[in-house]
Structure formats: structure tokens, C-alpha cells
Design a protein around this nucleic acid. Structure first.
Lengths: 209, 209
DNA sequence: GGCATTACGCTACGGGTCGTAGCGAAAGCT
DNA sequence: AGCTTTCGCTACGACCCGTAGCGTAATGCC
């Protein structure tokens, strides 16, 4: 959310229903029109609000779509499936399911592209979308260490680099498979991918120590 | 290129200089303005051609930028560095160097985002950008098999799936590292990544047979 | 209740870009 | 020469942008 409730106590409060209606209308427009043909006037009409109301809450198309897409990732969880491999497969399948939805496909890559020239937008994406994914990696790693499937890493710097690497490999591979190669990240693919990743990490910690 | 020389023999030929000027102007505008603020009228002015000339050769912004960005990937090669690990590290560093350029960063993700709703554009990207990268994977794999670093794969279907997986992992990880995480894919990162990938593939072929 | 304050819906506007049509001139080929 | 295609240029309607202005609605504070 744009989250602006710092010290405003008096006056008419902002309609929370308008927020949800606007974000839902944004996703609807993303599905029907895609990023490039999406206009803020159309979104406002779909949401049943005035165009000026939309501009009072979001600075522009970029910020609006980031918030609309971010809500899709709220459902990401890390269920305990008993083993590291199963945990990874589960969360990767969830991630792939989200990326398979057209409102995510058309919106996510577009805002990432815009963020290459807009640091504030990049930070917004990091805070509302990427961080949630990163936490799953950290949580999965900690759980695997408790299980004894991964050795504890004493060096915090090395641990951070490894987590970053895993994150880029996992998220990047799924995104590339889905959006560039245009093939589904189905169960068979996820199994192969998880196998290579885990074997690589295991061999690394075995011989790298 | 847009490649339209099927049967036109008579009449004034199209200026080849205009093509290169337009594509160069497109990359220049991508650096200065980014994808969203790039306008075809501005590109035409930069290139010193009329706007109508530009529209006669490209259907729109998407196709133009794909061609302009595609030329950046022409320099991709697979130099023989003696080992599979060194070959991979070399080509990944080349790929990362291209993605570090601002004209590639702002343009590539944007056209990929557009391609999620445009099959013809997706095919254009595949033919002019992705295929070249895929060939490097195939060539590297064949070279490693000649060296004996990778076992020959008798099943062609399984071999194709493995190559697809490697391709998505490599390209996806580099792209995600560079454009989403916003951190450089420098030599240290590439070395760590290559190590995990190769160990994973080696263990897979060792135990998977 | 009355008042200040903020949000809302609506209309209207200048500015910019789009993509195309139409024209005369230029540059090739036969 | 004559034919054909491209080029540069101008002009145009259409669309979207982002904002200003106004009257109205909904809250908190006195």
C-alpha cells in the first residue's frame, strides 16, 4: 500500500473500499489490456472512482501496478513438507502458479523494467514483493539447518552471499522459464530444477569447507 | 532486422544507412530516456530521418527496440578456455557485461513484458535474441562432451530437457541478479554460481543414471 | 449543534504522443 | 526517357496525461 496515515486525525478519512476497488480494477485491466494499453482513466472508471481520486493516492502507473501486483504475492507461504527438497518444490510451485496468472505476467516484468531507471520504484518493488520471497529463502534455510540437512554457516558474510545466490537462481530460473522461454514451470520441471540446485549446494558445502 | 527484401527489384532501394542510424538512435534514446519515455518521433529526429520512414520499416516501438537491443547480443561468443567451468564463466561474464549496459537494462525487460501479450513479438525476441544464447549452451555442452567432462546423453528428449533447464537457470540467474536484485554479476559471483551449477549437474548425471 | 479539515466526484483544460494521409522530390532499374 | 519505390515534410484527428477548480460529503474537535 501507499501507506499514508502519519498524523491525519481530522477530516474525512480515505475510503478503504476505494483502495481495494482500484487495485482490483488495475489487475482486471492488466489482464484485459496488458501494461502498455492500461490507462489510469480506464482503471478509475472500472473501479467506480474519479480519476482525481486515483492520482491523490498514487503518483503514477508504475506505483499503482506495483501495489496491485504485490497483493498477488501475499499468498506465498512455506509449508513444512518434511524435507528441504519438498519445501523448495512446494514454494517454487506456488511462485510459478502466481507467475502463470496474466495480471502478474504483464505487470511484474514491466515495473521491473521501469525500475531500472527509477531508484524509488526499485525500492518499492523490493519492499513489497522481493522481500517476501527473500524471507522464504531465509526461513527455508534455517529450517533445513535445524533438520541437519544443511550445515550451519559460521561466517555471516558468506551465509548472506549464499542466500543471495540461491535467491537469484531460484527466482530467476522460474521467471525465465515462465516469461522468456514461455514454457510452464510444472511439477516435472520443478523436480529437475530442485534436484540440480540441491545437489550443487550439497557438493559445495561438502568440498568447500 | 525487419528483413523485407522478398521480391522488390525495381524502384529506389531502402537506405541501409538509415537502418543503422535508427537503431543506434534507439539505443541512445534508451540510455537517455528509458523505455517509457522513449518516443518514435524523438528517435526519428535523432536518427536524422522522417518519422514516416521509421513507421514504414517497423510496426511500432516494440519491434524497433527488439531489433535495437538484439544487436547488443551479436558480440556473444563461446571462447575455448580449456574447461567447461572456464567456458561457462566466460560466457556468463559476457552476458552480464551486456546486461550491465543501460540500453539493455531498460529495453530488454520491457519488450519481454510486452511479449507476454503478443505472440509475434515473443517469436521475434526468440529468433533474434534468445536463440543466440541457446546456441552457446548447446555448443558448450557438445564441447564438454568431447572433452569427456560431461557424459553423452543417448536420450534426445532428456538431453533437450536438460539443456532447457540449464539455459533457464543460467540466463535467469544472471538477469535476476542484475535487474531485480540490482547487484553486479561480477567475477566472484559468477564463480560461485558456476560452481553450484556444475556440481549440481555432475551429481545429477552421476546418480541419475 | 457548529466549525474546521480532509476526501470525493465531476468537469474542463493545455500539452504531448500516436499513427496515418497526402504531396512533391529523389534514387534506383530497364 | 519512363517506371517504381523510397524519402522528407506537413498536417491532422484521436487519445491519454496530469492538474486546476468547484461544490459536496464525511469525519474530529469545540
Amino acid at each position: 500500500m501507499q501507506s499514508r496515515t502519519p498524523a491525519s486525525r481530522t477530516g474525512r478519512p480515505r475510503s478503504a473500499a476505494a483502495d481495494t476497488a482500484i487495485l482490483a480494477a488495475t489487475r482486471e485491466a492488466l489482464v484485459e489490456l496488458g501494461w502498455s494499453k492500461l490507462t489510469l482513466g480506464d482503471v478509475a472508471t472500472r473501479a467506480g472512482v474519479a480519476k482525481t481520486t486515483l492520482y491523490r493516492r498514487w503518483a503514477g502507473k508504475n506505483e499503482l501496478v506495483v501495489d496491485a501486483v504485490a497483493e498477488l504475492f501475499d499468498e506465498l507461504e512455506l509449508p513444512d513438507r518434511g524435507s528441504l527438497a519438498a519445501d523448495i518444490e512446494g514454494v517454487v510451485l506456488q511462485f510459478a502458479a502466481i507467475l502463470a496468472r496474466p495480471e502478474a505476467r504483464s505487470g511484474l516484468m514491466a515495473v521491473v523494467a521501469e525500475a531500472t531507471r527509477d531508484d524509488a520504484l526499485r525500492e518499492r518493488i523490493r519492499a513489497s514483493i522481493v522481500d517476501r520471497q527473500m524471507r522464504l529463502v531465509l526461513e527455508g534455510r534455517a529450517r533445513a539447518q535445524r533438520r541437519g540437512e544443511l550445515p550451519p554457516e559460521p561466517d555471516p558474510g558468506e551465509a548472506a552471499r549464499t542466500v543471495d545466490l540461491i535467491f537469484d537462481v531460484v527466482a530467476g530460473a522460474v521467471v525465465h522459464r515462465t516469461l522468456v522461454s514461455g514454457k510452464p514451470a510444472d511439477e516435472a520441471w520443478v523436480r529437475s530444477f530442485t534436484r540440480v540446485l540441491l545437489l550443487g549446494l550439497a557438493s559445495q558445502s561438502a568440498e568447500g569447507a
